[in-house]
Simulated assay, not measured.
Amino acid sequence: MALRAIPDSMDPTVVRSIDDELARIERDYRVSVRLAIESGSRAWGFPSPDSDYDCRFVYVASLDSYLTPWRERDVIETPLVGLLDVNGWDLTKALRLLVNGNAVLIEWLMSPIVYRGDANFRQDLRDLANRVADRNKVARHYLHLGVKQWELAEHHRSLKKVFYSLRPAMALRWLREHPDAAVAPMHLPTLLEQCELPGDLVASVAELTELKSRTREMGGGEPPRPIATFITAEFASAVDAFPKTPDRDMDQVKALTAEFFRGEAMTVGAAG
Rank of each mutant, 00 (worst) to 15 (best):
V99H: 05
L105M: 10
E107D: 13
M110Y: 06
S111M: 02
P112N: 06
N120G: 15
F121P: 00
D124V: 13
D127N: 15
L128A: 06
A129Q: 07
N130W: 01
R131A: 13
R131S: 06
A133G: 09
A139F: 00
H141L: 10
L143K: 08
H144G: 15
G146Y: 01
K148P: 04
Q149L: 08
A153T: 04
A153N: 06
H155D: 07
Y164K: 15
Y164M: 15
S165D: 04
S165F: 00
L166S: 05
A171R: 02
A171V: 10
L172S: 11
R173A: 04
W174S: 10
W174H: 09
E177L: 12
E177P: 03
H178K: 06
H178L: 04
P179Y: 00
D180I: 03
V183F: 08
L188T: 02
T190P: 06
T190S: 04
L191M: 08
Q194W: 00
L197H: 08
L197C: 14
P198Y: 01
D200S: 14
L201E: 00
V202L: 14
A203G: 03
A203H: 10
A206V: 08
A206D: 11
E207W: 04
L211W: 05
K212N: 06
T215F: 03
R216N: 08
M218V: 03
G221Y: 05
P223L: 09
R225W: 01
I227Q: 05
A228V: 09
T229N: 03
F230Q: 07
T232K: 12
A233E: 07
A233W: 00
A233R: 12
F235Q: 08
F235C: 08
A236S: 12
S237A: 15
A241N: 07
